[in-house]
């Protein structure tokens, strides 16, 4: 693994006195999927949220260490968090479309980043929905409420919405765990397709999913990074006995 433009350096996250993430240095190679696995409460979601400064919204959260994105330390006071978040898309476990039309959901982000012309917005909406494999299902009802879509469609809409600002990195927090198996596999296919253009970091509780779609896997335990390697190695021949136990379902 060579050092890439997206990595963390000795990153620790505190909630008050509690250290939720402990001294983690991780690389996220381009055009690849990195899966973060580990038992609930192991800090992987907190880690993910710190990557686009979502923890800013939690007043007690404190960050130590660095997060580098394209040569920029994202926690530097001079960093424009608005521009930073344009580079990083994020999708949550529960689909959370805005209470607006399908079109407005996708156009929301680009509008704030200066896209004014209707024609340009139309193009962004179409290309984002195509990338999220949703275009054919919704192209005739773009003006309808996003809440009229099924759960799986809503989640793909959220992915399309995240893609609308042309991010370089996509953060996914258990994106398929609230979906039925068919929708879930559609989202997985989508992730594999999307990694051709982006680096993807995904938190998942589903070991098969991690094995299927990721190139690298990081195993978290109690805020510590226990093991990080190519997914194939982690799932066939992990160095750490605890990793072995976790992925085989004996623990966690």
């Amino acid at each position: 693994m060579q050092t890439t433009s997206f990595r963390t350096e000795h990153l620790s996250v505190f909630y008050g006195q509690y250290e939720a993430v402990k001294n983690i240095s991780l690389n996220f190679p381009e055009q690849s999927v990195t899966a973060l696995i580990g038992p609930s409460g192991c800090g992987k979601s907190t880690f993910l949220r710190s990557l686009n400064r979502m923890n800013d919204e939690i007043s007690q959260a404190k960050i130590k260490g660095r997060i580098w994105i394209e040569g920029e330390d994202i926690n530097d006071p001079s960093t424009d968090v608005i521009q930073l978040r344009q580079k990083i898309g994020m999708v949550w476990q529960k689909p959370n479309p805005f209470y607006k039309s399908i079109y407005e959901n996708i156009a929301f982000g680009p509008k704030y980043h200066g896209v004014k012309q209707k024609k340009q917005l139309d193009e962004i909406v179409e290309s984002s929905l195509r990338k999220a494999a949703l275009w054919d299902e919704v192209k005739d009802r773009l003006k309808q409420s996003a809440l009229s879509l099924s759960g799986g469609q809503q989640q793909r809409l959220c992915i399309a919405r995240a893609l609308s600002v042309k991010p370089r990195i996509l953060l996914l927090d258990e994106p398929a765990s609230a979906l039925d198996p068919v929708s879930s596999s559609k989202v997985e296919e989508l992730i594999v397709e999307l990694k051709k253009e982006l680096s993807i970091v995904i938190v998942t509780h589903n070991m098969q999913q991690a094995a299927r779609i990721s190139d690298y896997t990081a195993y978290f335990y109690l805020g510590t990074l226990m093991e990080h390697n190519e997914t194939e190695i982690i799932f066939t021949n992990p160095e750490n006995a605890m990793t072995q136990e976790y992925i085989s379902g004996r623990f966690g």
Binding site: M90, N96, F108, G109, Y112, H113, C158, A162, V165
Partner: peptide
């Protein structure tokens, strides 16, 4: 958070 993540203030 989705709105923040898209870069909205």
């Amino acid at each position: 958070e989705s709105s923040f993540a898209l870069g909205a203030t």
